[in-house]
Computed example of a mutant assay.
Amino acid sequence: MTSATRDDPTLKQTADESPSQADRPVLLSVQNLVKEFGTGGAFSGSKNAPVIRAVAGVTFDLATGETLGLVGESGCGKSTLARCILRLSPPTSGEVFLNGVNLAKLSEEEMRRQRRHLQVVFQDPFASLHPRMRIGEIISEPLGLLDMTKKQRLERLHELVDLVKLNKEHLQRFPHELSGGQRQRVGIARALAVNPKVVILDEPVSALDVSIQAGILNLLADLQERLGLSYLFVAHNLSTVRHISNRVAVMYLGKIVELAPREQIFDSPRHPYTVALLSAVPTADPRSERQRQRIVLKGDLPSPAAPPSGCRFRTRCWKAQDLCATEEPMLRTVGRSTFACHFPEPDVR
């Protein structure tokens, strides 16, 4: 399957066609992460209000220099998972290891010291920047936490501006005076200010014009190669994910249902949900686009407060059988794919 984004000549190929993770040390490890939200509360009048399990036991590793794409439709728990990893929202249970340090067990003060290694670029570049601060102040603010002289901070500021391909005159401007693409470059520069090891990219190009997206994606690829960064790339645009990711994790209703190398996911998906998502990706070839068979999922995404019994996807799955209603499929690895399905698609590779 060929996506329009992948065929865009302005985009660089950022990930290896057949990446090997075995020789890369694990930098970030998420183990059985759970995040629950209560729907009751002091003023709800109900002591038995249901609990929403937005993240329902997620496990994955991120290797040094790797990009892991995390995809799924709105409401599946992608952004909640990212916030739990960052400790912006404390997980209910589970563990998050960054370079061997369990972030879930750290105090607030200890976590503050670890934040320099784990940074985030948000979806909306305008909302994530202080409107009354100049660009130079926004980018250099994290440098105040480091043991640096005023001269060193200024040198670092100019280095960051060059890294993200902004001009020095931008430093005196306010966020509203920049374009959307320039504001996102500011957000990236701010995230890189403290030399992080892992950057979580939460829909970093979805708020930008299509004409600007390629420039940001190419910038992220250049920075990864130059600085050895690891990315967790949260997105719903599968064309973008195919371009930038080494591996892809597909999330549905709080759980990862498939995880595999990029080309395995796009050429031979095993989980029906992945197949349905890929069927909606447009192709660059008009003839292929006309012949493409779209799989329209029936019904709405179930509520995480009352997920279906057995397989969570069974109420929308065209392959569901009686077993799917009574037994939850566990993640299993076959070949290069890890998936949770009783009746997976065949591997056609």
Rank of each mutant, 00 (worst) to 15 (best):
G77M: 05
K78C: 05
T80H: 06
T80V: 13
T80N: 07
A82T: 03
A82R: 00
R83N: 10
R83H: 10
R83W: 07
R83M: 12
C84F: 05
C84I: 06
R87Q: 05
L88T: 01
L88A: 09
L88C: 03
L88F: 11
S89H: 10
P90R: 11
P90Q: 09
P91C: 02
P91M: 04
T92M: 08
T92Y: 05
T92H: 00
S93Y: 05
S93I: 09
G94Y: 06
E95T: 11
E95S: 13
E95W: 10
V96Y: 05
G100H: 09
G100A: 07
G100Q: 03
G100L: 10
V101T: 08
V101W: 14
V101L: 05
V101I: 07
N102L: 08
N102Y: 08
N102T: 08
L103T: 02
A104C: 07
K105I: 12
K105Q: 15
K105S: 15
K105G: 12
L106K: 04
S107L: 09
S107A: 10
E108L: 13
E108S: 14
E108Q: 14
E108N: 15
E109D: 14
E110V: 10
R112I: 13
R113Y: 15
R113E: 15
Q114K: 10
R115W: 14
R116Q: 11
